[in-house]
């Protein structure tokens, strides 16, 4: 597992000397950047694809063979995601936050801000977007509402989680919530699963894209992981 930011941050917070020189330099740079910029310079590298339900198990077997947590059953997850938006005076000024909480461990809530997705040119292997994850308590929804954010949409993602090094692979199905209060009353949106390959890393690690592309190649006949331009999808 690569040294992640939170770890470095905690160490810096605790005033503890990090284990090795690498993390020390990294901690310094990350923390100083965070202090200067006001926000942690963090980027998510993302590849997306989909697979039909009938072929899902084949993909799961393949992933089990490729990924690190190979032993035992694939790890399941079930998350509820809510997208909150606040509109400014012009239509361009939209701020959105995603709140996600696990239905398996109900006390775990995460507030995520994602920036504008950069498609980039052909040389760039993945989608890149700035991203900031914050673990929060369960009253984050109330907090956002009071700040003036309004719920835009919500869905439930059920699926499986894998990781290979710091690459995170999820195979999940998106469900529509029919009744707002009842999270068990669901309707599936499509007959396929969403496959996502993502890495959250500090800015300037372009090498990750290559690694992710190489990993995506291994899944090639089953699922085509690619840069999906969301803006173009919305125009359809």
């Amino acid at each position: 597992m690569a040294l992640n930011f939170m770890d470095v941050f905690y160490r810096a917070y605790l005033g503890e000397p990090p284990n090795d020189a690498l993390s020390k330099s990294m901690a310094n740079s990350v923390v100083t950047q965070a202090i200067q910029g006001g926000i942690a310079p963090y980027q998510e590298y993302l590849l997306q694809g989909s697979i039909v339900d009938t072929s899902r198990d084949v993909l799961l077997h393949r992933l089990q063979g490729l990924c690190d947590n190979a032993e035992g059953m694939p790890q399941k997850f079930q998350d509820h995601e809510m997208v909150f938006m606040m509109r400014g005076n012009t239509p361009q000024q939209i701020i959105s936050f995603r709140v996600r909480h696990s239905l398996h461990q109900r006390q775990n809530w995460v507030l995520r801000y994602t920036g504008q997705t950069e498609i980039g040119d052909k040389n760039r292997q993945t989608l890149v977007r700035t991203c900031c994850d914050v673990a929060t308590s369960d009253n984050v929804v109330q907090f956002l509402n009071e700040m003036g954010f309004r719920l835009d949409n919500e869905f439930i993602a059920k699926g499986f989680f894998f990781h290979k090094g710091r690459m995170r692979v999820t195979v999940s199905k998106i469900y529509k919530i029919l009744q707002h209060d009842n999270l068990d009353n669901l309707e599936q949106l499509t007959m396929s699963h969403l496959v996502e390959l993502s890495v959250v890393a500090p800015v300037g690690q372009e090498q990750i894209g290559e690694d992710m592309k190489a990993f995506a190649e291994q899944l090639k006949p089953l699922v085509q992981l690619d840069k999906i331009d969301h803006r173009r999808l919305q125009t359809f």
């Binding site: 917070y13 461990q105 995460v110």
Partner: peptide, 29 residues
């Protein structure tokens, strides 16, 4: 190489459940 799965799935990778709750529950130093 075997990390506990993050819940929700977008959470930080390789962090124990207790550590994930450290921020929201305001753990002391």
């Amino acid at each position: 190489i075997n990390h506990p799965p993050p819940h929700p799935v977008i959470g930080t990778l390789g962090v124990s459940k207790r550590r994930r709750m450290a921020g929201p529950s305001g753990m002391s130093r």
